[in-house]
Design a protein around this nucleic acid. Structure first.
Lengths: 117, 117
DNA sequence: ACTTTTGTATACTGTTTAGTAAACTGTATA
DNA sequence: TATACAGTTTACTAAACAGTATACAAAAGT
């Protein structure tokens, strides 16, 4: 499992704690409805929270849920559902862009967005 | 869990069995290195195989691994890794194309492929 | 008829996931 | 100095996952 998830969460929390005392480990645990002991283990990289708790945690820490999930090695159920609805097409798309540079991905996103956006 | 995965696997296997007797449930189980009892439960939708076994099964049944994984509600580790490397970009891309028609996806794939392919 | 082969049912197993509960340790502070 | 709060440690747990092992009944060969 991913050790960096915990480190990242802790550093982010400590950052916020400097501005407001609502970001003690215990307060964050309370917001997530988990025990402080569990939150402590999370920050030490001993366990990972479930997907819903990671998403709530992202809300609390003002982080992008996709990023936090990615640090935990996960992809949200939302994205998984979109992919599994058309596995061949999305499989091809993602493999093709998997090694492309960021700017190419950005270009494709912009191009794809022209219609609906 | 997904009931249709089993149905699909069974129908595909029975199809192949009409041409070759290498596709009895027991032979397929042998190829996957699982017990026939387990394979039987798979075909009845009582359990799902692990990702590696689903991929092997796709090989045996001459199916697209992504499709078989999708029927099991899963996305391959390979694709997950590509996504989690750049979660924001892929998140945006997939959400944007999640409801687009197939032809739009195909267009984008072709466009994206121009460089490296 | 019998004996292989096929699929199935049942019960059990080890491992992982996602946590809880309680007690402990250090720190701040009034 | 006691009491409040912070983070941590340890031990435990319920449910899900990914199967195995054994035995059995029906069907197909020979």
């Amino acid at each position: 499992m991913d050790l960096n998830f915990g480190k990242y969460v802790k550093s982010k929390r400590l950052e916020l704690l400097r501005h407001s005392s609502k970001y003690t480990l215990r307060q964050v645990a309370l917001a997530l409805k988990v025990q402080p002991s569990f939150m402590s283990k999370v920050e030490h990289g001993l366990v990972l929270p479930s997907e819903p708790k990671i998403i709530r945690l992202a809300g609390v820490l003002q982080e992008d849920p996709d990023v936090l999930l990615a640090l935990a090695g996960k992809v949200s159920r939302e994205l998984r559902d979109l992919i599994t609805r058309r596995p061949r097409l999305f499989g091809r798309l993602i493999r093709r862009l998997g090694n492309a540079p960021d700017r190419e991905l950005l270009r494709v996103i912009a191009d794809a967005g022209e219609k609906q956006a």
